[in-house]
Amino acid sequence: MTNDINADIIRNLNDSFRRNLVFGGTVLLTPGVTSLAIDRQAELLEAVRKFDSFTPDNDPHGEHDFGSIDLDSVRFFFKVDYYDLNGRFASPNPADPAVTSRVMTIMRADEY
């Protein structure tokens, strides 16, 4: 039961962060994303914010921490990772925002 509760909490934290892209963590864009024109970057970020195509295949733990988006026939991924507050090690508890720093990386699939 604890794992289900933690997955619910983590999912809610990840969804909140992904939807606002400001509060709850840090967003990193790879060179494949930053090389896009600004309007394309904005379109990609908006697609990440609105992403809701989570399935058991792409989200087996129910945490909404990964997604795949196609934009102009190019595939992009976003991935949320959980670090301690210093950003040096894995978070001791990703369900606890008091000890977790979320980092979302948005990249071209070929950069993975």
Rank of each mutant, 00 (worst) to 15 (best):
M1C: 14
T2A: 12
D4W: 10
I5T: 08
N6T: 10
N6H: 09
N6V: 11
A7S: 09
R11I: 09
N12Q: 15
N12H: 12
N12F: 11
N14M: 03
D15K: 14
S16E: 14
S16K: 14
R18K: 09
R19L: 09
L21Y: 08
V22P: 13
G24F: 03
G25F: 05
T26G: 13
L28D: 11
L28R: 14
L29F: 07
L29G: 06
T30R: 09
V33N: 03
V33A: 00
S35P: 09
S35F: 09
I38G: 14
I38C: 11
R40K: 14
A42V: 11
E43P: 10
L44N: 05
L45D: 08
E46L: 12
E46T: 14
V48S: 05
R49Q: 03
D52I: 07
P56M: 07
P60E: 03
P60I: 05
H61I: 08
H61T: 10
S68P: 10
S68T: 15
L71G: 01
L71C: 04
D72W: 06
D72Y: 09
S73I: 09
V74F: 11
F76Y: 05
F78M: 00
V80L: 09
D81F: 10
Y83H: 07
F89E: 11
A90F: 10
A90K: 13
P92G: 01
P94Q: 07
A95D: 02
A95E: 04
V99Q: 00
T100D: 04
S101A: 08
R102F: 01
V103G: 02
M104C: 07
T105V: 04
M107P: 10
R108A: 04
R108C: 01
A109W: 13
D110F: 05
